[in-house]
Each structure stands twice: as C-alpha cells, then as structure tokens.
Design a protein around this nucleic acid. Structure first.
Length: 377
DNA sequence: GGGTCCCGTCCAACCACACGCCGCC
DNA sequence: CTGGCGGCGTGTGGTTGGACGGGAC
C-alpha cells in the first residue's frame, strides 16, 4: 500500500478542475476525477450518481484499477497487475479479484470498495476460481465474508452482493465478455501488456514495477494487423533477456518475446476470464489477443501507425522499472547489515576492524548503535 | 568521414546471513 | 495427520569497476 507516494510519476490530474490529483475514474464520463469534483459531479445529480466509478491503480495512478490483490491489499490496473504478479512464482500466487465499481459519492464509498473489495463476494461466475480451492488462496465466500465483517463492521453480505450486482452490470450484452476493455482499451496502452507478457519469461527474477516517468497521455491501442503487438516485440533477442537484481532500465525490455501459452495459466485471473467470456482457462495472452482481434475492424494507416510506434518508443524510453520488496524483514536486515565497500561483511570482521580503529569501547558502542536487533515483520 | 581521447552514465557482480520452504522423522 | 527439526536456497542493499555511449578535437 501507499505505492503511489514514492513513484516518480505524478498522479493523474483531475479532468474537471485540472489541479487536484485524480483518484477515481468515471466510466460513464470517461473522466478522471479528484474526490472533490467526483462528489460535486456525482453526488448531486441523481443520474450522475448512478455513474459507475473505480479507483485509480494504486501503483501507477494512471489507469483505472482492474483487480485487487489480496496479498498486497492494493487495487491495480491490468498493466501493473501483470507486471507485479508475473515477476515471480510467489507473486503469481497472490489471489486477485476484479475491482468492483461503486456508485454514489466518493466519501460514502470508502476505498475499501477498491483496495479491499476482495472481501466482497465475487459474482457467481467469477468466484469459481477463488473458492473451493480453485484459486491460490482457496478462500471461500464464507471466509471472505467473515473477514469482511471483521475488518469492516459495515460490510455485510448485502453490500457485498450489491457490489456483485454492480459487477454484473458491466457485462456487455450478448456475452461479449469485453466488460473491461470496451472501456479500458481506450485508456491503456497495450504495449504495457506486451511488456508484461515479456516479463513472464523472467518469472524467477525480482518483482518489477513499471514506473511512468511521464503522465500517460492519450491512450493507444496498437495496430492489430500483426501477430504481435508492436514491431519491437517481434524481435527475438532472448540472449539479452535478463533481468536485473536492481533497478532495470527500459532498455532491458527491448526484447520481443512472445509469451508462452501457459505463462499465465496458473494465475488467478477471474476478471480476465469474465472479460474473455470463456469459462475455460484463459490467460492474459488470450485476453490481449481477444482485444487485438476485436480491433481488427479498424485498420490503421501507415502514417498513423508510424506515429504510434514513435510514441511508443518515446514512452518506452522514459519508462523504468523499480524493484519491489517481497520481504520487508530481509530488506531491514540488509539495510542494517555491516558492509565493507558496499559488500556485506561478517559482523566479526566489522567489529574487529572497528576495534582496531576506535578501541574496544567504541566498537561496542558502534555495534550496539548500528547493528541492533531488527524487528521482523 | 574516421580515429582517438575524455567524461559521464549504466549496470552486473560481490558479499553475509536471516528467513522461507521443503523434506524427513 | 500434525508438529518439530534441520538443511538448503533465496533475497536483500551499497559500492565498485568495467562496459558503453556521446561529445570534442
């Protein structure tokens, strides 16, 4: 939680007042709004109050949240979700549920509906993977309701069901399943999804979180006339495909790796499944492909495509990935661990070294003050 | 235009050890 | 089946030196 504060990218500006940072996205208006404007616009008019809204992604703060991660207790957009939860096997096991849109005033719809909406009971179709051991957590509805009632005294089964109803509303008629991307595809650059797919190949590496160094301007869906999303992704540079243990520049991602078909098959992704309208095992790859093929009806001119490719490259250039800490306790230990020229050193070495320099008393003081007991989390 | 030098930037490697995970009893 | 125990592998951050790129001459 609280990712947004540390990112270098400023939060998306409110589309109404242009001054405050947007926190919610109104799907009906296709607008990013700050809490004040959201309350003003949606709190007064009855009709507007029926507009479904979702919180922005807590990581990038640039796109509407699509799923909520139980483990991280954070609402994430599709891109960040893929980025974070595809980075390693542990992260993959995080159980995620679709973000439920909320109605009415922002104040009355606490962020629990977003970041903690995993406590709400998913819809009948979407809950299959999260219950009966189908999902990673194997949590059942009763457990979630119990947790909800424990964490949120006002969270009841009724309210949870309301959220489910809200979710059902989103389903496109005809079972098209593009519940999300019908709106979202205009908001997200699919290049991110492609990059995310790329990163699936390096699943045994650190968790990497995408960071936009520039606010995301107008969304772009890349031309569908190819089997891959972009020119760069069609290249095969597997030899250079390595992930860094520390910060990773965008250049590391300058590879074109077609995700394996089962790369995401073990990820709990009920939302994607509902989007694709396919009850069988669906991966992000498939959902991306679905979206891609869905856009094939709108061919793009060469100039347009060139401009988009240029824009993509510019964005990729300015993109960077930061490391996420999986074990805070290990981080705490690492930060307090003695070092010699940046390398971890044995405490005995340090103590003897300090002992030689400052004497025994000073060494004891140093040892006590710098290398005290580190609390475990 | 090509070659060389210099400077700035980037990044993999290194280290110790607490802790998570897994198998065994 | 459950709990305890031990062994093994992983993850963690600051520094450094080499690689690399760009600019100047």
């Amino acid at each position: 939680m609280g990712f947004g504060g540390s990112w270098s990218v400023p939060a998306k500006a409110c589309g109404s007042c242009k001054s405050a940072a947007a926190t919610v996205f109104c799907r009906a208006d296709a607008a990013f709004l700050c809490p004040g404007c959201d309350s003003r616009l949606h709190g007064a008019a009855k009709l507007s109050a029926r507009h479904e809204r979702v919180w922005l992604c807590e990581v990038c703060e640039q796109a509407p949240a699509a799923v909520t991660c139980k483990a991280d207790a954070a609402a994430l957009c599709v891109t960040c979700d893929a980025d974070i939860h595809s980075a390693n096997p542990l992260a993959r096991r995080h159980e995620r549920v679709p973000v439920e849109p909320f109605l009415g005033a922002t104040e009355s719809s606490s962020k629990a509906t977003s970041a903690f909406n995993f406590l709400a009971v998913p819809s009948e179709t979407g809950s299959a993977d999260t219950c009966a051991g189908g999902g990673f957590g194997g949590a059942c509805q009763n457990e979630e309701l119990e947790a909800a009632s424990w964490l949120f005294p006002h969270a009841t089964g009724v309210s949870a069901n309301k959220l489910v109803e809200g979710m059902d509303v989103k389903v496109a008629p005809g079972g098209g399943g593009d519940v999300f991307f019908n709106d979202m595809e205009t908001l997200l650059d699919f290049e991110y999804g492609s990059n995310s797919m790329d990163r699936f190949q390096g699943s045994a590496t650190d968790s990497l979180v995408p960071v936009q160094t520039k606010p995301v301007p107008a969304p772009v869906v890349h031309p569908p006339s190819e089997n891959c999303f972009d020119i760069d992704f069609c290249r095969s540079k597997l030899t250079s495909f390595s992930y860094l243990s520390h910060s990773v520049s965008s250049s590391s991602l300058d590879v074109g790796v077609v995700p394996e078909g089962n790369s995401m098959s073990d990820i709990s992704y009920p939302f994607v499944q509902s989007m694709s309208g396919n009850s069988t095992d669906q991966s992000m790859t498939n959902s991306a492909a679905t979206t891609t093929t869905a856009n094939q009806a709108t061919p793009m001119s060469g100039m347009d495509r060139e401009a988009r490719v240029l824009r993509y490259r510019e964005k990729r250039k300015n993109r960077k990935f930061e490391k996420t800490i999986r074990y805070a306790s290990r981080k705490a230990y690492a930060e307090t661990r003695p070092r010699i020229k940046g390398r971890f050193a044995k405490r005995t070495e340090i103590e003897s070294e300090v002992d030689n320099i400052y004497g025994t008393a000073s060494a004891a003081f140093m040892a006590d003050s710098r290398y005290g007991v580190v609390p475990s989390f």
